[in-house]
């Protein structure tokens, strides 16, 4: 079985899609798939579907959805020899769990590659690190569960994963910058700073990429626009790290030209105190 949540919900068994069409069973499958092998309490599932005010029939309805899913998944998994049932969707004291290996879900693969990418970064292997992060991001086919109605529980998961995606993207760019790929990154960073106009990490990266490509004026312009935006919209100055990066550019600090210094920090923290 292969389940995909990094994008539209996908669930494939033996080459055939088994994603339910109805909204609530899709929510249940998504939530269970995000925690393979772990019991999801009935109360959590009910909160996800009905919020804080479940109808009287909620428990029965939930059981019906679970039975439908179990039948659907279990039947799609096809005939199998073992003498005992090994329920793919099992009932366990007060909850339900999807008994599939974690590797069946794309999030697991994504998180594994991100962790490996981080270790490579710490170990100074910028090349592997950049490529692992790139592969991890390549698993995404759109926004998390873009075609699933999300309730309060899934919403937290969606936020967590979208944050993780952005963080991984930033780390990948850090590794690329250390590899001296500054000019190749400019177009991507211009787009990213437009999409995340208050994201200081991405702005620091855009500044560094432009600066190292011999475009100091554009680098300073990025800072100027970020500062105006932060002051006008939030009433705050950019963080000290970005301010110091700006100072260093004004002072033409030679350290700025060292692509991969011994300090293994993010671009944002290049001038951390």
């Amino acid at each position: 079985m292969k389940i995909q949540v990094l994008g539209p919900l996908g669930a494939e068994v033996n080459g055939g899609s088994i994603v339910p069409t109805a909204g609530k069973p899709r929510q249940i499958l998504s939530l269970l798939a995000l925690h393979p092998g772990r019991v999801m309490p009935v109360s959590v599932l009910m909160e996800e579907i009905w919020g804080t005010e479940p109808p009287q029939s909620a428990l029965t309805t939930l059981q019906t959805y679970i039975l439908q899913l179990r039948r659907r998944l279990g039947t799609a998994m096809g005939p199998d020899a073992p003498e005992v049932a090994k329920d793919v969707l099992a009932t366990r004291h007060g909850g339900y769990l999807l008994q599939i290996p974690a590797e069946s879900v794309d999030v697991h693969e994504y998180e594994r590659m991100v962790a490996e990418g981080r270790s490579a970064f710490e170990a100074g292997d910028d090349d592997s690190s950049a490529s692992l992060f790139r592969k991890a991001l390549g698993l995404w086919r759109g926004s998390v569960l873009v075609d699933v109605r999300v309730g309060p529980i899934l919403e937290i998961e969606v936020m967590r994963l979208e944050e993780s995606r952005l963080g991984t993207l930033e780390r990948r760019i850090d590794a690329d910058l250390r590899l001296g790929r500054h000019s190749e990154l400019i177009a991507e960073l211009i787009e990213l700073t437009a999409r995340y106009p208050q994201h200081e990490g991405l702005h620091s990266q855009a500044m560094v990429a432009l600066y190292r490509s011999g475009r100091q004026a554009s680098a300073l312009d990025i800072y100027r626009k970020l500062r105006i935006r932060l002051i006008e919209e939030l009433g705050v100055e950019p963080s000290p790290q970005v301010q110091r990066l700006h100072q260093a550019m004004l002072a033409v600090d030679p350290q700025l030209d060292v692509a991969a210094g011994p300090r293994r920090s993010s671009t944002f923290d290049l001038y951390a105190a």
Binding site: R70, G74, A85, K86, D87, V88
Partner: peptide, 9 residues
Amino acid sequence: RVCFPHAGR
């Protein structure tokens, strides 16, 4: 008989 142990059927 077609046996589906994952669905208990």
